[in-house]
């Protein structure tokens, strides 16, 4: 029998994991909001962040903050390279072509990873991994707690940037109406590149945090992409707050579902949720109507 405590414990774990999913999704959501492009390489950008932080910490014994910063830096670099080699040239292309291009980039990058690194799934075990914290009846692993809080901080930072700073407002305005933004003097071309690079920085940051709680390998990009898609589409494309809601919902469903679904089929939960969301309500919970029509 499954008792209520196990379920509520799973809900708590799910919320924490969901915050991380949301941080992963926020960058993707930002990119879509501004550029109206499905960046299917996003999962690989997360994996890149994970690898960078992982190697820095295991091979060179670098402390986490430094590894995190480098992962963000590499994320920014990857975003700039992607944007100016591929993304910029396909903005006017039909959606059909965009899918092929970014999916091709996904396959390309995954196989470059596979040439660079062996396919062993990796997770980082820190001395903190065994510690746990008690909250009333619940016990939560310290690493999960820190990662969850980190995810919320990342999202909050992005949200504040978009709503409270002049540059962020320009990005936000462009995502709402590109033509009107152009008219009021926003250099939308530049905003697009900034939004893409900023989203890539989020991917790097999220990658540096996922390695504590999720295993990754050269081909994890597709798995991460699916997670990101579910979180973002569930919450609503282009909405940062929506992504947080979507991520937490996904985290809870996955964690609670694991109790009920036979072990081998747990990935079905995520895929199933994605299919249901896409088929039933592509606008998501908090998405802007009309935005889903790419």
């Amino acid at each position: 029998m499954v008792d209520a405590l196990i379920v509520s414990q799973a809900v708590v774990n799910g919320i924490l994991l969901g915050c991380l999913f949301a941080a992963m999704g926020a960058g993707f959501s930002l990119m879509f909001g501004v550029l109206r492009v499905f960046n299917l390489v996003y999962g690989d950008q997360v994996v890149l962040g994970s690898y960078v932080a992982y190697w820095l910490m295991t091979l060179y014994g670098v402390s986490f903050p430094v590894a995190f910063a480098v992962a963000v830096g590499v994320g920014i670099a990857s975003g700039a390279v992607l944007y100016y080699t591929i993304i910029k040239w396909m903005l006017q292309a039909p959606v059909f072509n965009q899918i092929v291009i970014t999916f091709g980039a996904l396959i390309l990058v995954e196989n470059v990873f596979a040439l660079l690194w062996d396919p062993t799934p990796r997770t980082f075990t820190s001395p903190l991994s065994l510690e746990s914290v008690a909250f009333g009846p619940f016990t939560v692993s310290l690493v999960r707690l820190l990662v969850g809080v980190g995810g919320v901080i990342l999202i909050a930072a992005l949200y504040l940037f978009l709503t409270r700073t002049k540059y962020g407002q320009a990005v936000y305005a462009t995502s709402i109406n590109e033509q009107a933004s152009l008219v009021v003097g926003i250099r939308t071309e530049r905003v697009k590149s900034v939004a893409f690079v900023l989203g890539s920085a989020m991917a790097g940051a999220a990658g540096a945090m996922t390695l504590f709680v999720m295993s990754f390998g050269p081909f994890s990009g597709l798995d991460f992409l699916i997670t990101v898609l579910v979180a973002v589409i569930l919450g609503g494309m282009g909405s940062i707050v929506g992504t947080l809601v979507g991520g937490i919902l996904l985290g809870v469903v996955v964690n609670v579902g694991n109790i009920f679904v036979p072990g081998a089929l747990t990935p079905w939960l995520e895929f199933g949720l994605l299919i249901v969301v896409l088929a039933v309500r592509p606008t998501g919970i908090m998405g802007i109507r009309g935005l889903e029509e790419v």
Binding site: F38, V95, Q98, I99, F103, L222, I226, L229, A264, L265, P267, W268, F271, G272, L274, I275, L278, A279, V280, P282, E292, E293, V294
Partner: peptide, 26 residues
């Protein structure tokens, strides 16, 4: 199921369904 979704969402649904079959047969 998949033709309910349009555009890129169709591509994503079919991708997800195929992955579900792979996982099933593992």
């Amino acid at each position: 199921i998949s033709i309910t979704a349009t555009g890129i969402y169709f591509a994503l649904v079919t991708l997800a369904l195929a992955e579900m079959f792979r996982i099933f047969f593992l």
